[in-house]
Design a protein around this nucleic acid. Sequence first.
DNA 1: AATGAATGAGCATTCATTCAT
DNA 2: TATGAATGAATGCTCATTCAT
Lengths: 205, 205, 205, 205
Amino acid sequence: MVRSVRTTIQNRPAGGDKRELILRSATKVFAERGFFNSKVADIAKQAGIADGTVYLYFKSKDEILHSIFDKAMDEFISEGKQKLEGIESPVERLRKIANLHLEKLSEDRDMAIVFQVELRGSTKFMEEFSAAGFADYLEIISDTIKSGQDAGEFRTDIKPIVCAKILFGALDEMVTNWILSKQSYPLKPMAETVLQIFFGGVMKQ
Amino acid sequence: MVRSVRTTIQNRPAGGDKRELILRSATKVFAERGFFNSKVADIAKQAGIADGTVYLYFKSKDEILHSIFDKAMDEFISEGKQKLEGIESPVERLRKIANLHLEKLSEDRDMAIVFQVELRGSTKFMEEFSAAGFADYLEIISDTIKSGQDAGEFRTDIKPIVCAKILFGALDEMVTNWILSKQSYPLKPMAETVLQIFFGGVMKQ
Amino acid sequence: MVRSVRTTIQNRPAGGDKRELILRSATKVFAERGFFNSKVADIAKQAGIADGTVYLYFKSKDEILHSIFDKAMDEFISEGKQKLEGIESPVERLRKIANLHLEKLSEDRDMAIVFQVELRGSTKFMEEFSAAGFADYLEIISDTIKSGQDAGEFRTDIKPIVCAKILFGALDEMVTNWILSKQSYPLKPMAETVLQIFFGGVMKQ
Amino acid sequence: MVRSVRTTIQNRPAGGDKRELILRSATKVFAERGFFNSKVADIAKQAGIADGTVYLYFKSKDEILHSIFDKAMDEFISEGKQKLEGIESPVERLRKIANLHLEKLSEDRDMAIVFQVELRGSTKFMEEFSAAGFADYLEIISDTIKSGQDAGEFRTDIKPIVCAKILFGALDEMVTNWILSKQSYPLKPMAETVLQIFFGGVMKQ
DNA sequence: AATGAATGAGCATTCATTCAT
DNA sequence: TATGAATGAATGCTCATTCAT
């Protein structure tokens, strides 16, 4: 009893702790060397644990990558939903989404690299990921656009889901460029630029 | 030009032919199994040649992937430049670019998979590719936007290169979705939709 | 004796009990999966104890196999000696031995599998086992044959120890066949058949 | 042409050669260390080839063990059938079989160890082997006994297949003892002893 | 140029054993 | 005694690359 209380207060429960440690270590290693070039031994060394210990928490190297995605996506979506609460205006909701998208990814460059690069390197992964959290994300954007159309704010001649993909694609490209850029610059402000064009287009009025 | 004519006339199997055969075979194999899961032996078998022969034309498996990219990008850019000749209007030039982008990739699904998926799976590759033809491509778009701004057609409060990335990102997402989609639909028409938003935005006028 | 009574009375789970539990569990697991494919964790799970507990009773996985053999062999030999008491006729003694051999092994199929299969899979084990209880067993048979020769009942042109091996080999083959057989049949009656040939040969008189 | 003729005369065709080399090396290694304790690298080193080369000729370590058995059994059975040709007397046929059995195994001690020990260490293997050549062997013995019964030479109150197992078991035990023995003695003469008992029994007439 | 047999470095995963609690 | 999380050595197999022919 005492112990479990203490554990909860002082550290996380042992299991969770080490699982997260491995996930964080793997993110770093994958970001640095790429998924296929990362050895499980690298991850273990980075985490300061024995090779075998990794397998007490994950069934395989693949599962680690999956878990990184699942965890980050879950957190992103639930945080996003929470932050969107109370925002009614579709324009403001999209603004919030775009800002969160860039903000979250620029907060953890390693995670961003895994998301933008490592997760894209196989159709197998991509298909699984599309089927998973990513579809949820697109749907949130799409629903917002739909409500903007219903409210008479957005043009109705384009399907919401396509609009959503366009916005996502533009933001995604911003992130990828930021990662690959040799210069270091703040990512988040790009959101506003993307939104200006997404909302108003490049044409002079 | 001269070389290819000669090859054809003299009927030498000539480096060029087999090189292309390998490149085509590799594209197919990479698209089907992914780069890391493809064996050089698979490529050789697909090409109907011996394993060792691959190494008479390419230094490594990596170099094959590079060459696929280089060749396709060169062709795309040179074909693009040619087709853009005589088109003065920035709007029309961008329309042409967007249509070509989707058209070329939908013409060869295997190539598209390699471009959208396999080439994205490593920062190493991505950095090299960014430095290569991809930068040229972005520049062409960017220059066109610049000329549109100079001509007073496009808004000037956004940097051309950022605009270019936004357009590219949107188109790129269309292609990726098309590849991963279980349904089969024509990709090219998506260009017009992207352009409508890129030019005019989603806001109701 | 005394110890087992004490254990039972005082109801101490006592070393002995758990040791036997582990031995029984290991026999089952080895019989099902084979020695090399059995994990210590499997044995522990089968016994309903923690992995580490196994090592409080046995130094190693090897020692468990040894102990299975030693214990069963000790029991078999001491039970055998007891049952042979009072039987004077060499023929009857051999009959008893052959019957006991097949009876004991058919009583516990898992144990039989371990004896016929798992214990045979390494020269190291086999040599150790030959040096252990198995030699005692052969000696008992051999001595009986010797006394039959001395009594003028058995032919004297063949060395008792060789005779013993022949009898053992024939019985052993009966057991192995019984274990591997897909059909289920009573093993013990085979003893009589073996003895008929061992005693009288296959030639028509 | 010339080359293939030469190859045939001077060496065996390359493939066969190396396959046999691996088989011979593996037999030696398995006999020395046991199947489970032998590394594929040990086999390769013994054969003087690279680790990977083993896999050009065999799918797995298991398959090597299988092949050792299959090849030896095929050779033994075909050689045996040939040597039995023209021998009509069932007694003489059994004598030939028993002698061949011990002779062949004593000719190659490593092979004998693999047959007597390594092949026995797993029910999986044993079942497969029972289903394979071993059953053929027992059948040959059994058929001979049957013909002896039909000819009125052998007693008819015992099923031929059981007789066959008894004879096999006795011979098998001779081989196992010979292998495990610290002293070196000729194995083949044991055949006659076994036959004396098998034919005439141990009882004094 | 072409072949394809041979190479051998490389790595994910397993599991007997230990030890802090 | 008992636990079970942690350890880390051990190994079968793959595959990019080479090279003798």
